[in-house]
Amino acid sequence: MSRLELRHVRKAFGGLDVLADISLSVGASEFVSILGPSGAGKSTLFQLLTGAEHGEGEMLFDGAPLDDHGRHFAFMPQCDALMPWRRILNNATLGLEVQGIRRKAARARVAPLFAEFGLAGFERHFPAQLSGGMRQRAALLRTVVQERDMLLLDEPFGALDALTRTAMQRWLEQMWRHHRWTALLITHDVREAVFLSDRIYVLSARPARIVREIKVPLPRPRSLGGDAARQASALEAEILDIILNPNPPKGHDHD
């Protein structure tokens, strides 16, 4: 049973087609990635989902049309978007405060999660005092405590250095196995998509359409060595080939 379903979604900005024809679905407790070149309109898709923009086509959640956008999604933007003037604890409670939960109650709900997110002892710090990886974990903490139906992650590790990014991907995979969030990840990092996802939608360059849907059959926990890693490499090579040699476009090639 799919939770989020998009049918033939289109979006144009002033005559410029950004999203040509997007149909996709995300099942319950499924981790799905949207993989595409930079500037393909991946972030536009999230703007449609969060209600910042409006497009054509059908967007359904649990079979019903999306109307009250805030209700279903917890959104994590590209940069960490932590408020520099709030301490980490108060950044983490932001979503709950907006929902109208009292500060004290919100803090009580967030505080036990700090250890799991590797942030224990940093509750009273300001974002500027944290490393890039810690800031990103704090941003994810702020996202998941909202307890929405689904996470929207927009290139969450794009601004990190390569080593930190790999560490964060492993950490996120482990966290996901534990919590089984329903998640939609936007990325242009092929390895990241393969490492984290159950399924990957490959987007074309603008105007974006879905070139291919790829299942990732690798066992969890995902590892960086052994047989599974070789399989992953083969899959990564295949995806890179699809992205870098797009002609002839195959249209909808659901397997």
Binding site: T50, G51, A52, G95, Q146, L152
Partner: peptide, 9 residues
């Protein structure tokens, strides 16, 4: 991004 995130909240 902060604005967009707050709207999404």
């Amino acid at each position: 991004e902060i604005g967009q995130m707050l709207r999404a909240m």
